[in-house]
Design a protein around this nucleic acid. Structure first.
Lengths: 236, 236
DNA sequence: ATCCAGATATGACCACCGTCATAACCAGGC
DNA sequence: GCCTGGTTATGACGGTGGTCATATCTGGAT
């Protein structure tokens, strides 16, 4: 059907690639296998809206999801990105709150849908899972603080450099010439993350492109000289 | 000695006011009482530096602490503020990492110093404590995402309004005329949080003051008309 | 094939705000 | 008392980057 869509993964495959569920065994694993199910979201599709009741968590098997905060006027800010192996909506489900952020697929995405009730049971009964949950939260909090710092301080070009480097670091595929960001993000997405406009983002990126620091194709970004981008942060 | 310093609290008092330790009982509580100890930090004193090995967590009894990220050039950004009852350094200690942020007291502060070894023992043995840790992390992550969004989007005045409202919300003391922020923050501190300069912060605040929206004394800020500040976010 | 929406690209204008300079003010130390 | 360092305050100037306008390019749908 969808030319770019990867084949539907099995539940076992979802579990095996997941940071949170991988080590799970015994009855917990059994329940996951029977009560959780695989779902699909197309590019641009909303998996859940901020403010809605949390009914399930999503463990990504393939594809990428952006977590967006929408302000009153409609302006949106992407505060985090999740990729294969990551689980989103975990805190909301465990704590019984509504989702704080809107989750939108940025590429065709297969994921494991774990109902809230099941997730809460597993969390309460399985000590191992609790540890794993904490271990996934810690880096996210650190990343959030990190980005906060980078976003507040400095000029737009530095902020964009930070965003691009973070993306290359978190979701980069390395090859001889450089590192390609695996997430198919538009300039508009990047702008949302760096807190600037599409126009400025385009301007900065094409400047970098002319310098030979990055290479761009539609929705694809390759970092050729990360040092050059790093320099953009230090200077000034 | 210090005229502004509040009297040294007892260990029991620290535990009772703490979100994390309050419910602790039995052996866990015993160990806390014998192995943890009360410490003091003066205004401006560094409790720990980012990057240093995490040797203890700090549970605040009185006073306020800012958590700061320092960039390469020396510019600092305040990413979070902790008040009485809050525990900081928890994740670093439990996960065995070094502190990700620098902790600086913004007012005379009494706190409970819990050694890393003890904290890890308690965390591993006491299921209740694990839950509490997660419950303290969740709002912090949400707050971080919230601030990220507010900081990226919009003009400086809006960002400052967000910061001030958040402070009034988290640490405000309400009385007839308005809400006073209990944390003794300088304009420079506010600037660090909003990602702007001291000068701009002063200009904006004195504009608000002339409008009668806020009232200022040295290191003290009272919000008189929160709606007016909220409007600053919506408009434009 | 054609059409269309979304993505990419570039230019002109000017408001906002960061930088620098200068000064008054306040608290604490001696 | 005086002096010192931190905080608050205000003005002038210039550049960054947001806004608007316009145009081309690409991929997917029919």
């Amino acid at each position: 059907m969808q030319p770019h869509a990867i084949d539907r993964p099995s539940i076992v495959a979802c579990i095996e690639h997941s940071g949170v569920f991988r080590k799970l065994a015994g009855e917990s694993r059994e329940r996951l296998l029977t009560e959780a199910f695989v779902a699909y979201a197309d590019r641009g599709e909303v998996i859940w809206f901020a403010g809605s009741e949390s009914r399930f968590s999503a463990t990504l098997a393939s594809g990428y999801v952006k977590l967006v905060r929408t302000a009153a006027q409609g302006t949106a800010v992407t505060v985090d990105i999740a990729g294969p192996g990551h689980t989103i909506g975990l805190l909301a489900v465990v704590e019984g709150h509504s989702y704080p952020l809107t989750a939108i697929a940025v590429s065709p995405t297969w994921y494991l849908k774990v109902p809230a009730g099941l997730m809460r049971d597993l969390y309460n009964s399985d000590g191992l899972l609790r540890d794993e949950v904490l271990h996934t939260m810690a880096p996210r909090l650190r990343r959030a603080h990190d980005m906060m710092a980078r976003l507040t301080l400095g000029k737009v070009e530095q902020r964009l450099a930070s965003v691009v480097l973070l993306l290359a670091d978190s979701f980069g595929v390395r090859h001889e010439t450089g590192t390609t960001v695996a997430v198919p993000l538009t300039r508009s997405d990047l702008a949302e993350m760096a807190g600037t406009t599409v126009e400025t983002t385009i301007r900065v990126l094409s400047r970098w492109s002319k310098q030979g620091w990055v290479e761009m194709r539609r929705r694809h970004l390759t970092v050729l000289q990360p040092e050059a981008l790093l320099d953009r942060n230090e200077s000034d």
